[in-house]
Write a protein that binds this DNA or RNA. Structure first.
Lengths: 172, 172
DNA sequence: CTTAAAAATTAAGATACCTTAAGAAATGCA
DNA sequence: TGCATTTCTTAAGGTATCTTAATTTTTAAG
């Protein structure tokens, strides 16, 4: 799903939204520079981050993109970024794809699955503090780069509580 | 990853374990009858269910199976079951697979990804009560079939608290 | 530089969910 | 049918995490 053909590119300003709740994900995006996030908004209006996508990452709502149904998520630039577009057309019919492309794609799906499973394990079985430490170990560069409130949202806690945790950790 | 060739089958008694923390997942299992679960055990000894696998489902630790590394999960029969075995060998080298098999596999990975993403959204943004209701709507047959304590474990709460929630829901 | 905006901290009170423990109900096997 | 086992419920007290709100610190725009 990566290096297939020359694609349309676009500059996206920090704060700009590429996909909103209710839209159909006509595109997946490859981040060429900068960083995007995907998130949901819950019943009480709070935002929960699903994914960060720095350079080289893909971001979309796979369900919406694949099945052409309205999405429940948002995708937004958290830095000034450049993205390239991947259209649905190319992935409508798998049988038309080259075998190597299929293999590439399978591996990407599989890697995503593995990462997503890890996150579920963390959410089910680790404390907030453990999840924060795990995040800093898994994504050290993102920790430097992103505001803490976004990391708090990703690991499933409030920024205030993350602040408490950091103080507690520092005291050790 | 499904209907590829005749595979070895085995009866598994309720309570029997097919994969333990530290093992390498030499096999994936297809459940022919009965039901299995996969789970992790957290630092304080509590069990958290990752997946239920009734008839027709596959279950394994994809990371361990794919990358031949020790697993962190357990797989265990929760009913007397029959499973068939899928070996690592067949999936070591994607380029040797038929194109249709690859397509099948991609779709399975993709569907799993989509389902797993949904679960993350639920864990991040829904209350315990909302997650329980969503579970009953998504897996009505499993609700009939499984003890509540297993469902509680899957949605990330204690059985006692699920009991409270059910009483609260019934009162409405 | 200066200043407005965004991010991070701190603290106090609130709540969702957990722990423990005990009893009631349901299930399965002899 | 009866007993043992597992499951489910109930309740009281506890803890992790949240809410609100005010203050400080950092960042970025002019």
């Amino acid at each position: 799903m990566d290096n297939i053909k020359i694609r349309k590119r676009k500059q996206v300003a920090k704060g700009e939204t590429l996909l909103s709740h209710g839209d159909i994900a006509t595109y997946a995006y490859r981040v060429e520079s900068g960083c995007l996030k995907s998130y949901v908004i819950d019943n009480s209006g709070k935002e929960h981050i699903l994914q960060f996508a720095p350079e080289g990452w893909l971001i979309s709502d796979v369900d919406s993109f694949t099945n052409n149904k309205p999405t429940v998520i948002f995708i937004e630039a958290i830095e000034n970024s450049e993205v390239s577009f991947i259209g649905q057309e190319d992935y409508r019919d798998f049988s038309r794809l080259d075998k190597d492309v299929l293999i590439e794609m399978s591996k990407k799906y599989r890697n995503n699955m593995i990462a997503t499973h890890k996150r579920i394990i963390a959410l089910l079985s680790a404390t907030a503090e453990e999840r924060y430490v795990e995040f800093t170990e898994t994504y050290p560069t993102l920790v430097q780069r992103l505001p803490l409130k976004l990391i708090a949202s990703y690991i499933g806690i409030t920024p205030e509580y993350l602040s408490d945790l950091r103080r507690k950790i520092a005291k050790k």
